[in-house]
Design a protein around this nucleic acid. Structure first.
Length: 581
RNA sequence: GCGCCCGUAGCUCAGCAGGAUAGAGCACCAGAUUCCUAAUCUGGGGGCCAUGGGUUCGAAUCCCGUCGGGCGCACCA
C-alpha cells in the first residue's frame, strides 16, 4: 500500500482480490456482478473496523450458502497484511479488524497528501458542466436564489475534488419579455434622472431603487435624447445597458458568497447566432419537431382556450406528458425553444451536464431532459444530464412566514442576509440538509442563535486545534511522527473516522449531494470535541503533556492532520476555517 | 384531475446506491470549568420511521395503493 492509497480504497482492492482468487480456484463462477459489494465501517464499532457484505450479496448468484462463502473469503482476507482478524457475523457479514499500524499509516497519508487528502480520480478528468443560479437579470439576488447558488457552487467544487473538470456556468435570460420590462423600468428612472417628476413607478414595472443609478448612468450617457422618443428607439440600447448593470450587481452579490462562475452564456447572443434555428432544422429533419396543435392544459382548460398551430417538439417520445412548443405564434422563440439549443451547445463542450433549478421549475424538467436526450442521442450515446431540484426556502421572521414580493419591493436581498449573518453561516445553513427537502430560514433564529449554528461547532474544532498547536509551539513542542505508536484507542478512533473522508467524497460526488460533507464535518468535530474533553478529567490524555515530549509530538501530529481534514472539508463547502474564535 | 418532491423523537433534520440494537442538534432533566479555548463534554427521558399491502435471508431505504404537506401543470420565464 502506497502512502497515497487510502485505507478504504485499499480494502476494496483486497476484497476484490480475494474474490478473484476464489474465481480462479473455480469456487465462484466468473463474471459475477460485484456492484453491490460494499466495504464500510460497521454501525456498531464493537463489530470491528470494516465490514463487507460480499458473501451475502454473491451467495445467491454463486449458488452458495452465504456463511460458507464467507468462510472462504475469510481464509483469503486473513492473509492480507494489516488484517488482525476476520470474523463471520450475523447472516454472513465479514467483520475485519485492522492493525493499529494500518491506521497510523492512514494518518501519515493525510500528512503526505495535505489539501489533497480525499481528492479522487474517480471522475477521470471528464468534464461536467454545472449550471446554477441563472437568475433573471432584472434585479439583485434575493434569498429565493440563495440555496441553488450555494448548492450548485459546493457541488461544482466537490466534483472537481472527485476528479472532474468542471465548468461553472450561468445562463443569462436576457432575451425574454422580462428584460423588456427592465428596459422600460430603466427608462422611467432615466427620465427621473433628467429631472422629470415621474411619481410612482407604473404598475407592472420594477419599482426597485436599484434602478436609480442605472437611470442616472443612462442620463449621463444619452442626455435627453430618448426622453420623449418612442420606445422602439431606445428599447434595445436601454435593455443592453440595464441587463449589463444588473449582471454586475448579481456578480457582486454572488461574490459575497464566494461564488464565481466560469462562463456567463447569453440567451440573446445564442439567438443572434442562430443556434435555435439550427436546432429546429435538425429536429425537423429527424421528425422531432412538427407543426401541430397545442393541447389545453390538463385538468383546467381555460375558457378562452383556442387551439393554435405551433412548431412542437416531440417530447412525449422521451417521456414527457405532452409535446412542447419551441416558438410562439409571434414567431419568437419560447423559453424552451432557446433553452433546448442552449443545452445542446453546452453538451458540445462537456461529458455530462448538471442543472440546479428551483423546485418551482420542476414541471419543465421532463421536456428539457427529453430535448437533451433527443439532440445528443442521435448516435446512441446521449450526454448524461441531470436536473437537481432545490426545494423552496420558506423565509421566516419571528416564526411567521415572510412573503417576498418584487412588486412591493420588500424582498429580502442576499446581500442583506450575508451582511447580517455572514457568508459562512449562510453557506453552511444551506448545506446542512438535503436539497430535495423544503427548509425554513428564520432570520431571527439564524441571527440570534447563531452560536448554535453547526458551522461554529465545526470552526471551533479547527480553532481549538490551531490554538493547541500554537501553544505547543510556544512550549517548545512540534508535531512529529516519530512516536505515533504511542497513540491509543481514543486517538485511533479519530483516525478511523477521518479515514472515511475519501469514500465520503466519492459517494457525495456520485449522488451530487454536497450536504453529506457538511454532516461528516459535524461528526468529525463532535469526535474531536469529545476526545478533547477527556483531557479535562484526565490530564494525561491532553494533547500537550509537558513531561512527555514524544507523546506530545505524536498527539500534535494527530491534531495537525485532523485540522487539515477539517480544512479540506470546509474548502469543499466554501466555508472558512478560522484560526481562533 | 395530472406530474414531480417530501412525510423519521416535542421542534429542525441525518440515515452513506436494502444490512446487524434507527441517529444528531435544539428543547427538557442531572452532572463536568484551580484544565491545551465550556461556542465544549458526560449521562437520562423521548420513535408503530404517516398508513395499508407487496418484493426477500433482511425494508426507514425498492414497488403499488391511501392519507397529509409543498411545487408545478402557458405561446411566462
Amino acid at each position: 500500500m502506497t502512502a497515497a492509497l487510502t485505507i478504504h480504497a485499499a480494502f476494496a482492492g483486497h476484497i476484490a482480490a480475494a474474490l478473484d482468487a476464489l474465481e480462479a480456484a473455480g469456487t465462484l463462477p466468473d463474471g459475477l456482478n460485484r456492484a453491490a459489494v460494499a466495504v464500510e465501517p460497521p454501525r456498531d464499532p464493537s463489530h470491528g473496523d470494516l465490514a463487507t457484505n460480499a458473501a451475502m450479496v454473491l451467495a445467491k448468484p454463486a449458488g452458495l450458502n452465504p456463511r460458507a462463502l464467507a468462510e472462504l473469503l475469510v481464509a483469503e482476507l486473513t492473509k492480507v497484511p494489516g488484517v488482525a482478524s476476520a470474523e463471520i457475523a450475523g447472516p454472513g457479514f465479514i467483520n475485519l479488524r485492522v492493525d493499529a499500524a494500518a491506521w497510523i499509516a492512514e494518518l501519515r497519508a493525510i500528512a503526505a497528501l495535505g489539501g489533497d487528502y480525499g481528492r479522487s480520480t474517480m471522475g477521470q478528468g471528464s468534464t461536467v458542466n454545472v449550471e446554477y443560479v441563472s437568475a433573471n437579470p432584472t434585479g439583485p439576488m434575493h434569498m429565493g436564489h440563495c440555496r441553488g447558488a450555494v448548492v450548485g457552487d459546493a457541488l461544482a467544487t466537490l466534483l472537481e475534488f472527485a476528479g472532474h473538470k468542471v465548468i461553472r456556468e450561468y445562463y443569462v435570460n436576457d432575451a425574454g419579455a422580462q428584460v423588456d420590462v427592465l428596459a422600460r423600468s430603466a427608462h422611467v428612472r432615466y427620465r427621473e434622472a433628467l429631472g422629470e417628476a415621474v411619481g410612482d413607478i407604473p404598475e407592472g414595472l420594477y419599482p426597485g431603487e436599484y434602478l436609480i443609478p442605472v437611470g442616472q448612468a443612462l442620463a449621463a450617457e444619452f442626455g435627453d435624447t430618448y426622453a420623449k422618443a418612442p420606445e422602439a428607439d431606445w428599447l434595445v440600447p436601454f435593455r443592453t445597458r440595464a441587463v449589463a448593470a444588473m449582471l454586475e450587481m448579481i456578480k457582486a452579490d454572488l461574490a459575497l458568497l464566494g461564488i464565481h462562475h466560469d462562463l456567463f452564456s447569453s440567451e440573446a447572443e445564442l439567438q443572434a447566432a442562430g443556434k435555435p434555428d439550427e436546432a429546429e432544422k435538425w429536429l425537423r429533419a429527424h421528425d422531432l419537431v412538427y407543426d401541430g396543435h397545442l393541447e389545453a392544459p390538463k385538468g383546467k382548460t381555460p375558457e378562452d382556450w383556442e387551439p393554435v398551430v405551433l412548431p412542437l417538439f416531440r417530447s412525449t417520445k422521451f417521456g414527457d406528458d405532452q409535446d412542447r412548443p419551441i416558438k410562439k405564434s409571434t414567431g419568437e422563440w419560447t423559453y424552451f425553444g432557446a433553452d433546448l439549443a442552449y443545452h445542446f451547445q453546452k453538451a458540445q463542450s462537456a461529458d455530462a451536464l448538471v442543472d440546479i433549478w428551483g423546485a418551482d421549475h420542476a414541471g419543465t424538467v421532463k421536456r428539457i431532459k427529453a430535448a437533451v436526450a433527443a439532440m445528443t442521442g442521435a448516435e446512441g450515446k446521449p450526454t448524461p444530464f441531470e436536473v437537481k431540484l432545490v426545494q423552496m426556502v420558506q423565509l421566516m421572521k419571528g416564526g411567521q412566514p415572510f412573503k417576498m414580493s418584487k412588486r412591493a419591493g420588500n424582498f429580502v436581498t442576499l446581500a442583506d442576509v450575508v451582511e447580517m449573518v455572514g457568508k459562512d453561516v449562510v453557506r453552511f445553513t444551506m448545506l446542512t440538509r438535503k436539497p430535495d427537502a423544503q427548509m425554513d430560514f428564520d432570520f431571527d433564529k439564524v441571527v440570534e442563535a447563531s452560536k448554535d449554528n453547526p458551522v461554529f461547532y465545526v470552526q471551533y474544532a479547527h480553532a481549538r486545534i490551531r490554538s493547541t498547536l500554537r501553544k505547543g509551539a510556544a512550549e517548545g513542542f512540534a508535531p512529529d511522527d516519530a512516536a505515533l505508536d504511542r497513540l491509543g484507542e481514543e486517538e485511533l478512533g479519530l483516525i478511523k473516522l477521518a479515514a472515511q473522508f475519501p469514500r465520503l467524497v466519492e459517494a457525495a460526488a456520485v449522488a451530487r449531494e454536497p450536504h453529506r460533507v457538511a454532516f461528516f464535518l459535524h461528526d468529525l468535530a463532535a469526535a474531536f470535541h469529545a476526545y478533547w474533553n477527556v483531557g479535562n478529567d484526565r490530564p494525561e490524555k491532553r494533547f500537550i503533556v509537558a513531561q512527555d515530549a514524544a507523546l506530545t509530538s505524536a498527539r500534535l501530529y494527530l491534531a495537525t492532520q485532523i485540522g487539515q481534514l477539517v480544512r479540506n472539508g470546509l474548502a469543499l463547502l466554501g466555508v472558512e476555517a478560522v484560526e481562533e474564535m
